[in-house]
């Protein structure tokens, strides 16, 4: 009994120390990545290549999801608003919910599962097949050559994807609200324009997506770099990327919303 108790306490201790160590390692990892971004600046082609994989190839899923989310918002918003006879506020509802919350959050979740998991698997497999060690042997820093370009690509593409998601969603809301249901077009746009503030709503949404882009790429790259060099290890790391990124996005979103809109 006593040994069992001692064991479980030891397990708690070991886990705590492990997670603190991992957090410290992750912080040193991201610091090293940013410090060794010189190569990416000198050879922007590396970043452009990664922008293609993380950004361009995520376009379809982002645009289609944005359109559908906007259309669903149009239907649901109309259903609720028409009970109060204020269906002309549909544009405000669609635009504000997309620009402030859904655009950055949904785009980041999709980005984590589409591009983040791919980054983790790629780097994890590079590690498992000892490509990273081979690079080190050739005096090529794998962080500067492999990790940093991917980090910057994710960091750049995330706000762009979120903006496209929001724009597409507003268009979807317009399609359902104005074209299909027949909400007055003038009041749809005019109320939207008078309610959406560039500084307060759109820029805060952009800031959110930048923060999410940083968090998601950081988690994906670190999980890949830290993955045990086995098939199991890589698959586990990919799963952890999606789970941890999603949780991080939602938690960060809560914090950012509390800071940005909490006082309003």
């Amino acid at each position: 009994m006593a040994t069992h108790q001692g064991f479980s306490i030891r397990a708690v201790g070991a886990r705590t120390i492990d997670s603190v160590l991992r957090l410290g390692y992750a912080t040193r990892f991201i610091a090293r990545t940013i410090m060794s971004s010189g190569t990416s600046l000198k050879r922007p082609r590396l970043v452009i290549r990664e922008l293609y994989f993380t950004g361009v190839l995520s376009l379809i899923i982002i645009l289609v999801s944005g359109l559908f989310v906007g259309m669903v918002l149009g239907y649901q918003g109309y259903y609720t608003l028409q009970t109060y006879g204020s269906e002309s506020a549909l544009g405000v509802l669609v635009a504000l919910s997309l620009v402030r919350e859904l655009g950055p959050v949904m785009a980041a979740l999709l980005f984590a599962s589409r591009a983040g998991s791919a980054m983790t698997a790629e780097i994890g497999l590079m590690k498992a097949t000892e490509q990273l060690s081979a690079m080190e042997m050739m005096a090529v820093d794998p962080i500067a050559r492999v990790v940093a370009p991917r980090f910057w690509a994710g960091f750049i593409s995330m706000p762009l994807l979120a903006a496209m998601f929001s724009a597409m969603g507003v268009f979807g809301g317009y399609l359902v609200g104005v074209v299909q249901i027949g909400v007055d077009e003038g009041s749809f746009w005019s109320q939207m324009q008078s309610a959406v503030d560039f500084q307060k709503d759109i820029m805060n949404g952009v800031i959110k997506s930048v923060v999410f882009g940083f968090a998601v790429t950081w988690i994906s790259l670190f999980e890949g770099y830290d993955a045990p060099p086995t098939a199991e290890g890589v698959s586990g790391a990919t799963t952890r990327t999606v789970v941890t990124s999603s949780l991080a996005i939602l938690a960060l979103d809560f914090l950012l919303t509390a800071f940005m809109f909490g006082g309003v």
Partner: peptide, 26 residues
């Protein structure tokens, strides 16, 4: 590759502009 990345970046900035125009006058 360059073309696609260029289109992607332009599209993103375009989307931001469209969002910004919603605030200003249509």
């Amino acid at each position: 590759l360059d073309l696609w990345v260029g289109l992607f970046v332009m599209g993103g900035i375009g989307a931001l502009l469209v969002l910004a125009m919603k605030v200003g006058n249509m």
